[in-house]
Write a protein that binds this DNA or RNA. Structure first.
Length: 414
RNA sequence: GCGGGCGUAGCUCAGCUGGUAGAGCGCCAGGUUGUGGUCUUGGAUGUCGCGGGUUCGAGCCCCGUCGCUCGCCCCA
């Protein structure tokens, strides 16, 4: 084994895998456009405070997972750990809070310094959408419906479940958090060590603990529903109604919480049981306070992000590419003619390749290896007659075809 | 950051109670100097992850280290 390895948590995407990623991204891009989301490309790194201010000073992403460094000019910068903060920064930077709503789609690499495992990498890829400037519950539902459409188009919808919850507005959340802290403090002795730490840092996280003892306590813990203000409750009802209107099936899960502090109201996750511990395939929610928190005007927003690696693992094989044509010169004298034929096929829009060396046998082997549909053989006989011998590599049958009609003949017979 | 499993040929792996390394696939060449895929004959594979130790002798035992992997935390 070579010592020349990629850095931990990074990997090479060779063609088979790159094609899968590409198919995920292209599918998402096309469907997003259908919903009116245009692609945004924001920088892969930002000033550190873009993330530290918005993600919450205590979140794990900020405290231990960011790839941060000081550049040569002495600026503190960070490789983006997620996409929402950059898009929101760009909305403010470009003065787009004057022309809302903004509907953005993005795709690209993200970076988190974590221990790699199945479906989790230090450099990974996300697709996501942000719908900024719409405070209505229909906006949440439309963003979710788009996500559902994408999962369906990738053929993974049958393996995923949409779970939704509400985190309420600020008032609801404060009241609920206080009730949770009171409840878990009363049962602190029974909590796992991890959850005792969470009690101080992020009590809502106890709700999705995997510890069995915790789960027993969680089952009897107070639910957010009892603490929702009438407005927050009405909003949640509106989202559920709109989801039904869009025809998206969902289940309510009152234990969905968010790791990032800026979420409010709607929280949702598409999960699967097919990826081990990394069951979340697409997740998002509403973040009405984020843009104001960054220094912009009070602006509502809702969005989601999905892991491309996880989707690529779940989906079926992507559509096959068009099989190429292999041009095979017979003898050195034929090479110049073969090159002209090769150029002609490419100009006609066909995928065509010619091996750089080798006798007919080697070139035929090469044709087979690249998965060619036809081999176009050109020897002195054919050239003299202005023809090519076209061999169908699937059936083994051959035909003599005039050079001027070659591209058309192939298009008719493939 | 914490715990389990695993590092042998390009790939997937075998290798007994320690005796100097193998298979399949792939690759290369021939059977076929104008025909691939099938078939057949032959060939090349390797710091046994790395460093140290024990031993007459280590792929195998011991210690350390690096990497991969699964899980915890957290998250897409």
């Amino acid at each position: 084994m070579s010592t020349l390895q990629p850095a931990r948590g990074t990997r090479d995407l060779l063609p088979d895998e790159a094609r899968r990623h590409h198919h995920v991204i292209e599918t998402a891009r096309a469907l997003s456009a259908r919903y009116g989301f245009a692609e945004w490309v924001t920088p892969i790194f930002e000033f550190t405070e873009v993330f530290s201010r918005t993600l919450g000073e205590t979140s794990d992403v900020v405290t231990k997972e960011m790839y941060s460094f000081t550049d040569r000019g002495g600026e503190q910068v960070t490789l983006r750990p997620e996409g929402t903060a950059g898009i929101c920064r760009a909305v403010i930077s470009n003065g787009l809070t004057q022309s809302l709503p903004v509907k953005a789609f993005y795709a690209g690499p993200m970076f988190r310094y974590e221990r790699p495992q199945k479906g989790r990498y230090r450099q990974f890829h996300q697709i996501g959408v942000e719908l900024i400037g719409a405070a209505e519950p229909v906006a949440d539902a439309e963003a979710i419906a788009l996500g559902w459409d994408i999962l369906a188009a990738l053929g993974v919808a049958a393996d995923t479940v949409l779970e939704i919850n509400t985190l309420g507005d600020g008032e609801s959340r404060t009241a609920y958090r206080a009730a949770l802290v009171a409840y878990f403090t009363a049962h602190e002795a029974a909590l796992s060590e991890d959850s005792r730490a969470r009690l101080a840092r992020n009590p809502m996280r106890i709700l999705d603990s995997k510890d069995e003892g915790d789960r027993a306590l969680v089952a009897k813990a107070p639910l957010i529903g009892g603490f929702l203000t009438p407005a927050a409750s009405a909003f949640y009802d509106g989202v559920k109604r709109a989801l039904a209107g869009f025809g998206v099936p969902f289940v309510e899960n009152p234990r969905i919480v968010r790791g990032l502090d800026y979420y409010c109201h709607t929280a949702f996750e598409f999960t699967t049981t097919r990826l081990g511990a990394q069951g979340t395939v697409m997740a998002g929610g509403r973040y009405d306070g984020l843009i104001a928190g960054m220094g912009g005007p009070e602006t509502p927003g809702v969005g989601w992000a999905a892991g491309v690696e996880r989707l690529a693992m779940l989906m079926a094989d992507p559509p096959r590419e068009e099989a190429p044509i292999a041009v095979v010169p017979v003898g050195e004298e034929a090479e110049a003619h073969a090159l002209a034929v090769l150029i002609g096929l490419r100009k006609a829009g066909l995928r065509a390749e010619m091996a750089y060396r080798g006798n007919v046998k080697r070139r035929m082997q090469r044709a087979d290896r690249i998965g060619a549909r036809f081999a176009v053989l050109l020897g002195s006989d054919e050239i003299a007659r202005g023809e090519a011998t076209v061999r169908d590599l699937a059936s083994g049958t051959q035909a003599a075809v005039g050079l001027t009609a070659l591209a058309g003949w192939i298009k008719d017979h493939r």
